[in-house]
Nucleic acid binder design. Structure first.
Lengths: 137, 137
DNA sequence: TTTTATTTTAGGTTTACAACCTAAGATAGG
DNA sequence: CCTATCTTAGGTTGTAAACCTAAAATAAAA
């Protein structure tokens, strides 16, 4: 069971935007792509998803770019995954077979747990901070 | 983020085998496929995975078939998923980009949580029991 | 010892989706 | 008007999911 690289890219780029949250300048794609090592051509689509989902806002034209639509503490990991990868741990709604019902309900519990966990992480936690920074920046 | 139907099939069929755990007769593919509504041709591969992983045992020839290799309480959901779908919440090991490290470590925490949760479910919990049975059997 | 019921193995098929790329349009600042 | 950005609407390529096919191996039964 793989996590898509699309979600990883989204997390990285959002973390980057979180770093500059509050700044008046907008970040543009090339810079974001460079800093977070994401293919620019692919990033276009990801940013589009995030924008349609209301996590970020954009402005076109010269001086255009992207910024978070809300403060980092108000953006959860759950929202990011849902937008970019669809529902968490989605499974076929069919409950065929003698054990279909039971298996489904158990996976539903697992999914609920995962949802709670991902809701507990917000973008502000993605900023590397304190001692760690000293070594890498 | 989807859960594969392969895992669902595996869970259902293992639940079915758990029902008959301890019985001297082995279950054969056609019967398992029928009872749990799994395509028989696909089930062949799933059972092969489960066998290679040591969750079930098999015997060929007439009177041949499949049975659990251990008692249901000793088989966890985590083992099932790992065998059939590979590592839980696996993500690309690369930590590129300014935020790569941080994003990876957060997802690792989420994954650990999911692993613990799935380890807490064992096959005996997949048997529908008590009042529920009254209505369906 | 032949027949028959099963697993085992080694492929093949088809469809969808992930992870990209391309290029022309829309918009806004200088 | 020109230029830097986003926007949109496609295309490509490779891989994997969810199946199917058929022959070979095995072991019980007749």
């Amino acid at each position: 069971m793989k996590l898509s690289v699309k979600v990883e890219y989204a997390c990285r780029v959002l973390a980057q935007l979180a770093k500059h949250y509050g700044s008046p300048e907008l970040a543009h794609i090339e810079k974001l792509a460079g800093k977070e090592a994401v293919p620019a051509n692919y990033l276009v689509q990801i940013l589009s998803d995030l924008r349609n989902g209301g996590l970020i806002m954009s402005r076109r034209g010269k001086q255009g770019g992207y910024a978070l639509a809300r403060s980092p503490e108000m953006i959860s990991l759950y929202e990011i995954v849902s937008l970019v990868d669809g529902d968490l741990l989605e499974f076929s709604s069919n409950t065929d077979g003698e054990s279909g019902q039971r298996v489904s309900s158990i996976w539903k519990e697992v999914r609920d747990d995962l949802e709670a966990k991902t809701r507990s992480y917000t973008l502000d936690m993605f900023l590397s901070k304190g001692a760690d920074d000293m070594y890498y920046i």
